[in-house]
């Protein structure tokens, strides 16, 4: 088996990521107070996606892992999103 050396992530990186996550959380609460109509949800979901990609990349070490785990994660998310879209072929055209 090839040498898979372990990357030690410094504490500082985690602290910065947490800071960004907290800011994004407050941001998402703040934008719901602004009247944006249906864009409110889009905005909140967009921020949630950014937050989750931060968690995936740093907390879950995807950045430091071998690329195939990233590919798997991307594949799974793609399958899920495609399933949602195909489901809405029904509901949005009824």
């Amino acid at each position: 088996m090839e040498n898979e050396k372990h990357h030690i992530v410094p504490y500082r990186v985690y602290a910065i990521v947490l800071l960004v996550l907290v800011v994004l959380t407050f941001l998402s609460i703040a934008i719901t107070d602004i009247e944006l109509g249906s864009y409110t949800v889009v905005g909140a979901l967009l921020l949630a996606s950014i937050k989750s990609s931060l968690v995936l990349t740093y907390f879950m070490h995807l950045k430091f892992d071998q690329p195939y785990i990233r590919i798997m994660v991307g594949f799974v998310l793609a399958v899920f999103i495609a399933v949602v879209i195909v489901t809405f072929f029904d509901y949005s055209f009824r």
């Binding site: 959380t25 998402s28 719901t32 949800v41 909140a44 979901l45 921020l47 949630a48 989750s52």
Partner: peptide, 12 residues
Amino acid sequence: WIFLFPLFYLIT
């Protein structure tokens, strides 16, 4: 939870 939070609490 990152997704549950906006979907339940932030869509008022």
